[in-house]
């Protein structure tokens, strides 16, 4: 094994190629309103988003979203939001999302990028990436302050001193065009993605 390492590196070092000048990182045109930009982009990739005046509105918004689509009024609620008044909204609050399939999950998306309407989950989140990967419907709670301009900025803010083992940048619901080139949502990850943006 180490023989191959040495041999590969030796072969690579035996040939030299000129290097073009370093490239400046990409910056999108500055945006006045990252939240509006995020919402427009997430809608363009077949997700949905709405702004809530306060965190207390989350259960009612969840109920409106689920019943509006004729989905069962039940969801796995992240520990952080378990204390909200779910019974008032007639939502059956299931235990927090974990590594198991569930019809709907409500959990925080700790970072996002406005440029492409992308949420950034990680293995260091309280419930990992499971709310998006294993729920049919992911209702993401996003604080306005957590929206960055770009993917790179979101990663930098999320990483801190050490990158999590896995970062999951999610842009809209899961999709596939593998059968007859026709778009179908919900191949493996969330079939529906709804973002509740809170102050």
């Amino acid at each position: 094994m180490s023989d191959s390492r040495a041999a590969i590196l030796a072969r690579l070092r035996a040939a030299s190629h000129p290097a073009p000048a370093p490239v400046t990182p990409y910056r999108p045109p500055p945006s006045q309103d990252l939240t509006a930009g995020f919402m427009a982009r997430v809608t363009s990739v077949l997700g949905t988003a709405e702004r809530l005046p306060s965190q207390a509105e989350i259960p009612a918004a969840t109920a409106r979203y689920l019943t509006g689509l004729g989905l069962p009024p039940a969801a796995a609620i992240a520990a952080e939001f378990a204390g909200l008044d779910w019974s008032a909204a007639a939502i059956a609050a299931l235990p927090p999302p974990e590594k198991a399939s569930v019809s709907a999950a409500v959990a925080r998306a700790p970072a996002a990028s406005a440029e492409t309407g992308t949420l950034l989950l990680s293995s260091r989140d309280p419930h990992g990436p499971w709310p998006d990967l294993l729920a049919d419907t992911y209702i993401a709670i996003l604080s306005e302050a957590d929206i960055s301009a770009t993917f790179e900025d979101a990663v930098t803010r999320r990483a801190g001193n050490r990158l999590p083992r896995s970062l999951h940048a999610v842009t809209g619901p899961s999709r596939t065009g593998d059968i007859e080139q026709t778009l179908e949502l919900g191949a493996h990850g969330a079939v529906r993605l709804h973002v509740l943006i809170v102050p």
């Binding site: 992308t118 293995s123 260091r124 499971w130 083992r165 896995s166």
Partner: peptide, 24 residues
Amino acid sequence: ATGQDMSSYVTCLTGAAAQDEDGP
């Protein structure tokens, strides 16, 4: 590739999961 601005999922894997972390 597909005319998307961003692929629906971008997965970034760094090392192995810590004891208190989800993942392999």
